[in-house]
């Protein structure tokens, strides 16, 4: 982005930085709170003791092996979904787009359902690989068919998602054994994932986040429109392809470890746009912080509302996110990015 140093631009930039700092502070607070909340509350002092000087009590085990990994997972998944949502909306120039419409989520879920239907009982790591491959294949199909225009891309994505979920539905009606497996992957959740290998997917997400920041400056040009981008000397096709790869990796790994949590990818970009304006680098930065905040808050909510952990986090994100999105649309309108 070519920054013109005028006074309004500078104050805008200052506001963005201030909001960013506030958001990071909020993220830290929510993260600490989320470790203390659960089937029974654990005081912050005990949380810190469990983290740094564990004695092996059951509270220590709960904090170290269940709640802390869960919070970490929420941060990674939230950031991945939020940033993927920004990238989808920018390259499709469609305020309605989200990672799910590119078939990433459905592709991942479908691959896992097919895998279990074929009797492929892989360990969690294999399941993760399966999900990412499914996401990549689905995205490749959607991109090959719908690359003509942003609208067609979205339409193809929705069509493919529907076909795949229809086939999944048919399969789980025919094979009830797969039914429970499907229920696991049909509603996104952060619970029960603490035993899955988290290091690799979180590292992958981290790398993709860095890649998104690097690509965001070129995306700024694409966001202005293809003709404009070309005249500014951008390789539009290349940038788009790069963004697609990042979206697939981000949303694919997030889905593979947490299941489909669609709403974060739709709402975070809309919220980020309120503070970041149209600048893609700032959008990416804000989304990377707002996503985790939304997910952690939802997760805390799910445990406070029903301590048995019966409410999956995706249900809560929809409940928190739905009204916020409606408010945002009513307040600001839904202009294309």
């Amino acid at each position: 982005m070519t920054t013109v140093h005028t006074a309004p631009a500078r104050s805008r930039s200052g506001a963005r930085t201030a909001w960013f700092v506030v958001a990071i502070g909020a993220l830290a607070a929510v993260a600490v709170a989320s470790v203390g909340v659960g089937a029974h509350a654990i005081a912050p002092a005990d949380v810190l003791r469990a983290l740094f000087t564990p004695t092996g009590t059951s509270d220590d085990i709960v904090v170290r092996h269940i709640r802390a990994p869960r919070a970490l997972l929420a941060v990674g998944v939230g950031a991945a979904l939020g940033v993927a949502g920004v990238l989808v909306q920018v390259i499709s120039r469609n305020a309605l787009a989200e990672p799910g419409v590119l078939g990433v989520t459905t592709g991942a879920g479908f691959a896992i359902t097919v895998g279990s239907a074929a009797g492929f009982t892989a360990p969690a790591a294999g399941e993760l690989a399966l999900a990412v491959v499914g996401a990549v294949l689905a995205t490749a199909v959607v991109y090959a068919v719908g690359r003509g225009s942003p609208l067609r891309l979205v339409l193809t994505g929705v069509a493919l998602s529907s076909v795949l979920s229809g086939v999944s539905l048919g399969m789980r009606l025919l094979l009830p054994d797969v039914f429970d497996e499907y229920r696991f992957w049909s509603v996104g959740s952060l619970a029960g994932r603490e035993q899955a290998p988290l290091l690799v997917p979180l590292l992958v997400i981290g790398a993709a986040l860095v890649g998104s920041v690097l690509l965001s400056r070129q995306l700024n040009a694409v966001a202005l429109g293809e003709t404009m981008a070309r005249s500014l000397g951008s390789n539009v096709a290349g940038v788009r392809l790069g963004a697609l790869v990042l979206i697939t990796v981000l949303a694919g790994s997030a889905t593979a470890i947490a299941g489909p949590i669609l709403f974060v990818g739709l709402i975070v970009p809309h919220l980020a746009r309120r503070v970041a304006g149209g600048s893609v680098p700032w959008l990416v930065a804000h989304a990377a912080v707002l996503g985790p905040i939304l997910l952690l808050t939802s997760d805390v909510g799910s445990r406070v509302l029903l301590p048995t952990g019966e409410v999956p986090v995706a249900v809560v994100t929809a409940f928190l996110g739905g009204p916020v999105l409606i408010w945002a649309v009513r307040r600001y309108g839904a202009a294309p990015l």
Binding site: L96, L262, P323
Partner: peptide, 22 residues
């Protein structure tokens, strides 16, 4: 206005779908 209605509709749909899954 079209886009507005669709976004609001998608929000409502997401909330209802969440309730249904729950």
């Amino acid at each position: 206005s079209g886009l507005r209605l669709v976004v609001i509709g998608i929000s409502v749909n997401a909330m209802l779908t969440a309730v249904n899954s729950w």
